[in-house]
Write a protein that binds this DNA or RNA. Structure first.
Lengths: 240, 240
DNA sequence: TCAAGAAATAATGAATGCATTATTGCCGAC
DNA sequence: GTCGGCAATAATGCATTCATTATTTCTTGA
């Protein structure tokens, strides 16, 4: 049984604009695609679950054709896997998948940082500074939820400042795949990681202010590498 | 009118394995997807052309449903664009698109080089060395066609050596989008670029031998940056 | 009682049909 | 002769239907 109806907005909340097909849902297929993606990314379906076409069709009030078109796209994005004659299943993330995805994110963020330094305006830097201090304030208050929110916004702003739509959409796709895994980093070791991450963000902001592209790229890559280590080292605890 | 029937193999020739859905065509949809992608990448449809569903269906001997599913996926990959109630069109590459794609390729190749140095075996390095010398031999013979072939193989090998499926499939998608644009670099200035590229490849091989990951990444990024400049500076000549 | 096999049921994959929208061709007006 | 509007045609988007495959359930035998 499904848990709740998929959201009705094509891009809910703070989700970054999807690079290539950004503007409103032109066709029914497009709208279904966005809603289904959100539905899956938000974790309404467990990893390994088969996707119930019938129920989703009734829930969305559509026929199977546009739904199945969306499933094919989501499979191409890596969120689902298609088993022959057995339909679509929610693709789980193995430890190896996590490593790979974090590394790719590192490469993309490094690129974003480098490009951003070539194009970013003073205003944009000021915005990121503000987000940085908001995030810091969450850090000292131990508000992990808020911290993550600002953290994501900062990285999104950097990607946006890179002025590269192809990068933005690729980054967004990777983010979707990773977001299904909620990393409730609450172990004792993760507190050390938290302060370390905060220090790294100081460096990020500093390099950005100086518009030191290659240096910022390197910092961001290492930032993601460290995040990767923190996540995969405690992957044995829980994975969903 | 269409030019010839789409290829029947799902991955013709030296195309790298598509990361996520690598193994043989499980469903009809999958096979159609591969054949259509090759058909488009090989330039059988002009940029801006609308994709004739009817003809393609007859040509492939299938109904519109699996074809349209494939079109949706190809649109998500960036090869096509879907206009509401006006079907799919082959997406052309603007100068801005070229810049963006080359930069993303630079970021991905930089990452690939870095990761490759962490995992590559001596045998793989030897293979790449061989390809490098084959490529050099083409260079001295002014065999541009052969040069490009070996060039691509080298870059593919580096990506493969990175041992990262997510990277491989992302890279493959970008390659597909770029391959539609045939860069027959035959201007007078491009000869200078050619020798410059050859020198850069010497550096690539050198850094790879030393397994100097970050250095190799930097070289590869600049390599792509230079390629980008060479291509976009003469973008006014011809674009297809 | 349990296991193995067969029938019944449901789900998937693909084809076809229908309503809507775009495109083309034609006619008349200026 | 050309421009603008209207009908005819074709194409698209989605729903529905059909065949095939998987899954469940029921039966039968040990």
């Amino acid at each position: 049984m499904l848990k709740s109806t998929p959201p009705t907005a094509e891009n809910s909340g703070d989700e970054p604009a999807r690079g290539d097909s950004a503007r409103g849902p032109a066709s029914l297929h497009d709208e279904i695609l966005g809603r289904l993606r959100d539905y899956i990314v938000e974790g309404n379906l467990e990893a390994g679950d088969r996707v119930p076409e019938r129920e989703l069709c009734e829930m969305l009030g559509i026929s199977r054709t546009p739904l199945r078109e969306a499933l094919k796209v989501l499979a191409a994005e890596g969120l689902l896997e298609l088993l022959p004659n057995r339909g679509a299943r929610v693709r789980g993330l193995s430890a190896q998948d996590l490593i790979e995805l974090f590394d790719v994110m590192g490469g993309l963020e490094a690129l974003a940082g480098r490009l951003a330094c070539e194009a970013i305006t003073d205003d944009e830097i000021a915005e990121i500074e503000k987000l940085h201090y908001d995030m810091y304030s969450c850090y000292v208050r131990r508000d992990m939820h808020g911290y993550f929110r600002f953290n994501q916004l900062i990285h999104q702003k950097i990607v946006a400042a890179a002025r590269n739509g192809a990068l933005a959409s690729t980054y967004s796709a990777m983010t979707s795949r990773l977001r299904r895994a909620r990393f409730t980093a609450n172990t004792s070791r993760s507190r050390d990681r938290w302060s370390e991450a905060m220090r790294e963000h100081e460096e990020i902001l500093d390099a950005l202010r100086r518009r030191a592209g290659p240096e910022l790229g390197e910092i961001l890559f290492q930032h993601l590498r460290n995040k990767r280590s923190a996540v995969t080292s405690k992957a044995e605890d829980q994975e969903s």
